[in-house]
Design a protein around this nucleic acid. Structure first.
Lengths: 255, 255
DNA sequence: TCGCACTATATTGTCCGACAATCGGACTAT
DNA sequence: ATAGTCCGATTGTCGGACAATATAGTGCGA
């Protein structure tokens, strides 16, 4: 599946890659950025200059730039005209991951498993790191979950809760891992809340316990509460009578 | 931090978004793909046709296409000329995530925490799912780790091991989460092996135990062995005298 | 009728030159 | 200092052009 080479025929030569100039150009610039020769904030040369330096037409340069732009490696700040080197924002990367997963028809249970793996550790780390201000922010979100009038609003706040938690953990890897998962899980959560009336209050209880554990810097408690919380989510989902292998849709991709 | 508006001055109007035509075009096509009007495998119209339909110049269409190409939403199969709709490959998405993290100067400890969260669950799931053929593949990789002559070779095989494990788990979310992490962790592992001679054999022992647990369908054992394995990795790292907050570099981005 | 070489056509990658819109400054008047 | 004006630089888009080559026919031989 991951091996494109047919096993029955050893290939002597790779198909020599004659990449279009535009592609090679974007690769060169990309490398410069990844190797920090070009640093975030630096302005790129103008299109005309680049065209001269690479000795190609400006149109060719532009195609390369569009590619880098889409990769999030360059972009504009404000209404500016010049392109600058930017570091790909987490939000954008996360949304790209979400897209990949959604197009892959991942199922609820796959997302849930990821949640089960990551969320408890995130909670534990947050309990180690969190300070009073952080806890206050979490409490604000929990309050918003409670008072949200629409189910959609509540769901969004729950997503926020996890996002903030990931932020508090101080771990950008876990943060980036969690973001697409929660976003894709949101529609499922929405349906679950609709069909299981007590679901929302159970969420609130769990959140309060987690926040409490974080406030008191008890990682183990935070972790175990989060574990229970995630388990609960699945149970609610089953209770709602939705199949675990339901494909999550694109509904949540609100770029 | 996330609020660019100065607090002291309420902004009355949003900056009105004048998107370039090429950008709007790529968005339109992207939406068609995400909403499954265009499905993977479908061929896009030719550039000339698109230019006619959108009533723009071909150059403009091309810029839009480069954007989509970079997003992994369209691409070519083989040496083909026509662009086809493709689902963004996991490999590509994973490498993009890796890039984002690397440019963010994530530290060893952050990656390790992610590993700690995900890997044990992956092992457990694999133990539930794995069949004899899968186990054989894992054993092959373990053997390769043992017989690898160069340290680099061994490290690559270890990465392979985790990759295969993630594949066996049948969970594409965890698979996608794990891939960038292991790849970014590879150089650290390399250095660790260099400095801690017994590291390699410890890895082998752990891998054997994990494979054994998978063969016998014992998720709990697989999980706890993996937990120990990951803990061990960290200990080896500390033993090697490398700071836990060492930034991982771009070294592993071998696109 | 099938398979294969060969040709014609379509399509892409790149180039050239052009132009309107507008952004960044410099310079000026209030 | 602020607002108004002017100008060069830069981007976004356009139209047309051409070589290279993938694709589709087309015809030929078995």
């Amino acid at each position: 599946m991951t091996e494109p080479t047919p096993a029955y025929k050893a290939r002597l030569f790779e198909p020599l890659a004659r990449q279009p100039a535009s592609h090679r150009i974007s690769t060169v610039i990309e490398q410069k950025i990844l190797r920090r020769s070009l640093r975030p904030g630096d302005a790129l040369p103008t299109e005309t200059e680049l065209a001269e330096q690479f000795a190609v037409n400006r149109s060719t340069v532009r195609e390369a730039l569009r590619r880098l732009e889409s990769a999030g490696l360059v972009g504009r700040e404000g209404g500016s005209k010049r392109l600058k080197v930017t570091r790909p924002g987490h939000a954008e990367t996360a949304s790209r991951v979400g897209r990949t997963l959604a197009l892959d028809d991942v199922t609820f249970i796959e997302l849930w498993e990821a949640m089960r793996a990551v969320a408890p550790r995130v909670a534990a780390l947050s309990a180690e790191q969190g300070n009073a201000a952080d806890v206050a922010q979490l409490e604000a979100i929990v309050a918003a979950v409670e008072t949200a009038r629409s189910a959609d609003g509540a769901v969004n706040q729950v997503v926020e809760f996890f996002g903030k938690l990931a932020e508090l953990s101080g771990n950008r890897v876990l943060q980036l891992a969690m973001q697409p998962v929660t976003r894709l899980l949101a529609p499922s959560l929405r349906r679950m809340i609709d069909r299981v009336p007590q679901g929302r209050t159970r969420i609130l209880v769990a959140q309060r316990c987690i926040v409490e554990a974080i406030r008191e810097h008890k990682p183990d408690e935070a972790e175990s509460w989060m574990t229970r919380h995630v388990q609960d989510f699945r149970r609610g989902y089953e209770l709602a009578g939705i199949a675990l292998d339901t494909k999550v849709g694109i509904g949540s991709m609100a770029d």
